[in-house]
Computed example of a mutant assay.
Amino acid sequence: MTNSDKEGKNIAIISYFTIIGAVIALFMNNDKKSAFAAFHIRQALGIFLSFFFIGYFIGYFDSWTISSAFYLFYFILWIYGFIGALQGETKCIPILGEQFQKIFKNI
């Protein structure tokens, strides 16, 4: 693994640590464009933004069951993406991953 591959992997891992980590990783990837890091930045940014957007509406249900299912679903998506970054894989997260790649294609 070359130094640029390690740096891209580190940036990809950082992108999964909260929305702030995704923004920091975005700026870190501006200097040395890593396709691997950009892929995971798009995935992480999509996970966090959709979580906040959909979570806003889930909050109106006022149901513990619906809220718990929502949190569990997004936690599983986050784990799937994070493990992919740790293993050096570029697999899209299920259901929404392809859309995130299309929406954030300029990153």
Rank of each mutant, 00 (worst) to 15 (best):
residue 1 M to I: 11
residue 2 T to N: 12
residue 4 S to G: 04
residue 5 D to T: 11
residue 5 D to C: 05
residue 5 D to M: 11
residue 8 G to H: 07
residue 10 N to C: 07
residue 10 N to D: 07
residue 12 A to Q: 05
residue 12 A to I: 04
residue 14 I to K: 06
residue 15 S to C: 07
residue 16 Y to T: 08
residue 16 Y to M: 08
residue 17 F to M: 10
residue 18 T to I: 09
residue 19 I to W: 12
residue 20 I to G: 01
residue 21 G to T: 06
residue 21 G to R: 03
residue 23 V to K: 01
residue 24 I to Y: 01
residue 25 A to E: 00
residue 26 L to M: 12
residue 27 F to L: 09
residue 28 M to E: 00
residue 28 M to P: 00
residue 29 N to P: 02
residue 29 N to K: 03
residue 31 D to L: 04
residue 32 K to E: 13
residue 32 K to V: 08
residue 35 A to R: 04
residue 37 A to T: 03
residue 37 A to S: 03
residue 38 A to K: 07
residue 42 R to Q: 13
residue 45 L to E: 08
residue 45 L to F: 13
residue 46 G to S: 10
residue 46 G to C: 09
residue 46 G to M: 05
residue 48 F to R: 00
residue 50 S to G: 02
residue 50 S to T: 15
residue 50 S to L: 15
residue 51 F to C: 04
residue 51 F to A: 08
residue 53 F to G: 07
residue 53 F to L: 15
residue 53 F to E: 01
residue 54 I to D: 06
residue 54 I to G: 05
residue 55 G to W: 05
residue 56 Y to C: 14
residue 56 Y to R: 13
residue 56 Y to D: 10
residue 58 I to S: 08
residue 58 I to E: 07
residue 59 G to E: 06
residue 60 Y to F: 15
residue 61 F to D: 03
residue 62 D to G: 08
residue 62 D to T: 10
residue 62 D to N: 15
residue 67 S to K: 13
residue 67 S to F: 13
residue 68 S to I: 12
residue 69 A to C: 14
residue 69 A to T: 12
residue 70 F to V: 07
residue 71 Y to G: 07
residue 71 Y to D: 13
residue 71 Y to K: 10
residue 72 L to Q: 04
residue 73 F to W: 07
residue 73 F to V: 10
residue 74 Y to R: 05
residue 76 I to Q: 06
residue 77 L to W: 07
residue 77 L to K: 06
residue 77 L to N: 04
residue 79 I to K: 03
residue 80 Y to G: 01
residue 81 G to M: 02
residue 81 G to H: 04
residue 82 F to L: 13
residue 82 F to I: 01
residue 82 F to D: 04
residue 83 I to W: 02
residue 84 G to K: 00
residue 84 G to T: 01
residue 84 G to N: 11
residue 85 A to T: 01
residue 85 A to S: 04
residue 86 L to E: 01
residue 87 Q to F: 00
residue 92 C to K: 12
residue 94 P to K: 00
residue 96 L to F: 14
residue 96 L to K: 00
residue 97 G to L: 02
residue 98 E to N: 13
residue 99 Q to R: 13
residue 100 F to E: 03
residue 101 Q to R: 07
residue 102 K to E: 14
residue 102 K to T: 14
residue 105 K to G: 06
residue 105 K to T: 08
residue 107 I to C: 03
